[in-house]
Design a protein around this nucleic acid. Structure first.
Lengths: 107, 107
DNA sequence: CTCCAATGTGGCTATATTGCCACATGGGGA
DNA sequence: TCCCCATGTGGCAATATAGCCACATTGGAG
């Protein structure tokens, strides 16, 4: 049972641990999109994107909604906005520190 | 530059996307530990753990501190506590919903 | 009903990741 | 100094993942 929760957590991180899937998730943070829209963000094959969406959905990061021929994806993992905000902050701080230490080195 | 930030983010998620590395990170959330302590949490080879630690460190999730023969690891990614709290919540809700829908199905 | 457009799936190859072994390194004690 | 202990690294074999192609499915237009 605990093991099951652990596996679900790993699944979420795995889903986000790919540039294409992370980018998709970040876009869906802002708006719902159909597969056709998402596909246009990348130069990969349509079926490749489709598989990435399946991974994100199965991890519970995103969910889908069918409307005629189209499938619309939107965020399902409520935490994601907060997580990305915090991580972006960390990375910006890290880069700022790194840059300022370079500045000091020059002086 | 934006691309660099994106790569860093993916690196963080990749680092957390493995049961051993996630477990290590969660333990370090509670206390600093030496490699010897961390190794004892698992039945994997010592060198396997060492490599997982290197992955986490290079992603900026954890940092190390040497003291004599020992190397102590501790958390470096400030967000992690909040992230894990939120994800644990999501998963618990998901499981609760799943269970209660099973209950309804029985009735 | 027929055809086409949007999407998903099976399966193959290329690449990346994992875990173990053998070995390297570096500090502390005798 | 010599040796041992805690830790890290190179590299190999097994496994997992990514991306593309061919094909399946499904719903709307005509």
């Amino acid at each position: 049972m605990d093991d099951m929760i652990s596996r679900r957590k790993v699944e979420i991180f795995k889903a986000l641990a790919h540039p294409v899937r992370l980018r998709i998730s970040e876009e869906l943070l802002r708006r719902e999109m159909c597969v056709c829209d998402i596909t246009e963000l990348f130069s990969f094959d349509r079926t490749t994107i489709s598989k990435h969406l399946a991974v994100l959905k199965s991890a519970g990061v995103i969910k889908d909604r069918k409307e005629g021929l189209f499938v619309f994806y939107s965020l399902d993992l409520k935490c994601l906005g907060m997580m990305m905000g915090c991580i972006n902050n960390s990375i910006e701080n890290e880069l700022r520190d790194h840059l300022s230490s370079l500045e000091l080195g020059k002086a």
